[in-house]
């Protein structure tokens, strides 16, 4: 079941990411990014991270992507036009991304004997989830960072309001 989930939703995530790359209109790119995030949520769930799967759906595909779609509609962004800079970007972009992919997969594959095979059934078949463990660490050992993130969110809200406000 884990293998089937990995193949189906991994392929869906890669297809969504490629669609983001190939679409010209930003709203199509935004919707394919939603597909990527939903399939990543399923992969998180299959890796035993139920809390993160829920947070991925709610925060990323629910809040952040809706915000993106709002801004695209607000600014009435049309299709991107080809310019002189885009040809140079094609020349640099694809070899650069291919080089980064080769480097990452070389490191991962050369170290793969150090990784054990992930025993996924362990979490999926267990009666208890690790949500209680996460919350106990988050609210005891990491309480200060957790509270600091709320201040960060508050500052981000203030900054967004100040930046997007119409100047008189």
């Amino acid at each position: 079941m884990q293998l089937a989930l990995f193949i189906i939703f991994g392929a869906l995530a890669v297809a969504g990411a490629l669609n983001l790359l190939l679409q010209r209109h930003p709203i199509n790119s935004a919707l394919s990014l939603v597909v990527v995030m939903m399939s990543l949520a399923v992969l998180y769930w299959s890796l035993g991270a139920e809390f993160l799967a829920a947070a991925q759906v709610i925060v990323y595909s629910g809040a952040i992507m809706v915000f993106f779609v709002f801004v695209i509609m607000l600014l009435n962004a049309g299709e991107e036009e080809r310019t002189k800079g885009s040809r140079a970007a094609y020349i640099v972009g694809f070899p650069g991304a291919a080089a980064i992919f080769c480097l990452l997969s070389f490191v991962f594959l050369s170290e793969r004997h150090a990784f054990r095979s992930s025993n996924v059934g362990g979490y999926l078949n267990n009666i208890t989830s690790n949500i209680s463990e996460i919350s106990s660490v988050l609210f005891t050992k990491l309480l200060l960072p957790f509270e600091v993130t709320s201040v960060l969110i508050l500052v981000a809200i203030l900054g967004a309001v100040v930046l997007a406000r119409k100047e008189q």
Partner: peptide
């Protein structure tokens, strides 16, 4: 259930990251 090696997830993440870099550029 069939086991999926961790390296497969890492390769998938590398693919997504590279597509992100390409789209960024």
């Amino acid at each position: 259930s069939a086991q999926v090696p961790v390296a497969a997830y890492l390769i998938l993440a590398a693919v997504l990251f590279s597509i992100g870099v390409a789209a960024f550029l």
